[in-house]
Each structure stands twice: as structure tokens, then as C-alpha cells.
């Protein structure tokens, strides 16, 4: 579904990604793990066009998408949940969700999706007319994911959904991620620091080190790998 062919991304003169290649098949949950500053978020930004790669190719459903502006990429069905949530603090929860459906015009189905999301996260329904900034961290993360779902993405890019959350809340969010993947056949590309949890929900995993992909395999194999255990799982 998504294929990256040796992309190189720069911030000014500094190269953040070196020949990163990876592919994501339809219906999968793929995780990208790595230490701080490895380039995980940059990979996502490159896909969504916010920080476009300087060289290399990105294909989405066999069509090249590198060089398109971010809004065109969202329109194709790739939606990103940015790191650190980035909800709109002064808009209400309902308005935040409505922003997610910004590019859609099918009113009927937007209503249905809204109901689906309220069923997924009942807390958001209770708080729908409160400003987004009043929510707790976990609720904001739920809102950020829901907002992205309102765009009806075929591919959901999740950037560190566990950031700054209590372990219990994190687990709940990961359950929901799995549920979304199962129920809607939404392909999910998950970037995480919490490698243990991420590898447990994912089908396959990639390991990123200082801008280079150093390993990729089935998630269960990576989870059992000794080097990975030492470097990322703290075992």
C-alpha cells in the first residue's frame, strides 16, 4: 500500500534520513521503533509531506506522492496524528472532530463516523462542547486519534501515541488502535518509543538508528531478538 524507496530527508544542511526504504501492506499494523533523534518522526513527516524528502520516491497505492503538498496527501487517504497531539485548544471537542472531516463533503457519513467515534471513546461525547485544551493528556490523545479518523484515512500515521501518558491510559489507547485496525481495515503505521508495547500490537516492525533502517522483521521475531531486547526493551 505504501512504499518508501531510499528517501533522504534534510533539515537545512543536516541529513535526518539516509536511504530509508520500507513498505506497508494493506490492513497491517507496522511499527517503527528507535531511540530519540533516530528520525522516526521525520519519516512520518516525509510521508505526510510536511517535511518533504529531498531525494527518493514514495508510492501510495502504486502512485508517486513525493512532492505533493500536505493537503493533497491527506485527500488521498493518508492522515497523520502529529507527535504531542496538537489538538486545537480553543476549539471545542466537537469542532476539533469537525476539523478532521475538513476535506469531506458527505454529511450523512460524517454523522455516522461521529457516532462511531463517540462509541469508541464515550468520554469525548460527554465532553463534546468543552474546549479541547481542557481535556487531560489521555483524552487529548484520544481526541487527536479520533480527529484523524474523521478524515476516513486508509492509512493512519500515529506518532508516539503513548507520549506523556500513564501506563494504564497507554494500554487503553493501544487496544483502541488494534480495534480500529480490525474493524475498519485501516492500515496503521505506528511510530513509538515504547518498543515493547508497539511490537506487541504490530504485525511487522522496522528499527531505525540515526536515520538508517538497521533491521526489519516480524514483530514477534524482533521482540525475541537479543540485540533489540538489550537496546530498546531494557531486558
Amino acid at each position: 500500500m505504501l512504499e518508501l524507496k531510499s528517501i533522504n530527508t534534510y533539515y537545512g544542511n543536516i541529513q535526518a534520513l539516509h536511504d530509508v526504504s520500507l513498505n506497508v501492506k494493506e490492513g497491517e499494523i507496522i511499527t517503527l521503533i528507535g531511540a530519540n533523534g533516530a528520525g522516526k518522526s521525520t519519516t512520518l513527516m516525509s510521508i505526510s509531506g510536511i517535511v518533504p524528502p529531498r531525494t527518493g520516491e514514495i508510492f501510495f497505492k502504486r502512485k508517486p506522492i513525493q512532492g505533493l503538498s500536505p493537503d493533497k496527501i491527506v485527500a488521498l487517504g493518508i492522515c497523520q496524528v502529529p507527535e504531542g497531539r496538537h489538538i486545537f485548544p480553543d476549539l471545542t471537542v466537537a469542532e476539533n472532530l469537525d476539523m478532521g472531516a475538513f476535506l469531506r463533503k458527505d454529511k450523512q457519513q460524517i454523522e455516522e463516523d461521529l457516532e462511531y467515534i463517540y462509541a469508541l471513546f464515550p468520554i469525548l461525547k460527554n465532553r463534546r462542547s468543552q474546549p479541547g485544551g481542557n481535556l487531560s493528556g489521555g483524552e487529548q490523545q484520544m481526541l487527536a486519534i479520533s480527529r484523524a479518523l474523521m478524515a476516513r484515512p486508509q492509512l493512519l500515521l500515529l506518532d508516539e501515541p503513548s507520549m506523556g501518558l500513564a501506563p494504564l491510559v497507554t494500554r487503553r489507547i493501544f487496544e483502541i488502535i488494534k480495534k480500529i485496525n480490525r474493524e475498519n481495515n485501516t492500515t496503521i503505521f505506528l511510530v513509538e518509543q515504547n518498543a515493547n508495547l508497539a511490537l506487541k500490537v504490530a504485525d511487522r516492525g522496522y528499527v531505525l538508528e540515526t536515520g538508517r533502517i538497521t533491521m526489519h522483521d516480524k514483530a514477534s521475531t524482533l521482540l525475541a531478538d537479543e540485540d533489540i531486547q538489550k537496546a530498546y526493551l531494557g531486558i
Partner: peptide, 25 residues
């Protein structure tokens, strides 16, 4: 209107706006 909502959103968070598919330019 929709564009008004987009203005409000753009004032609050540009990155999120781009992730939502709002054409910043």
C-alpha cells in the same frame, strides 16, 4: 463557514492543520 473554521484552526496550530489536510497557503 468552513474557511472561517480553518482560520481559527490555523491560528491555533499550523502542524495540526496540515495534518488535517487544510491548505495552509
Amino acid at each position: 463557514s468552513r474557511i472561517g473554521r480553518a482560520w481559527f484552526a490555523l491560528r491555533e496550530d499550523e502542524i495540526a492543520c496540515q495534518a488535517m489536510g487544510i491548505d495552509k497557503t
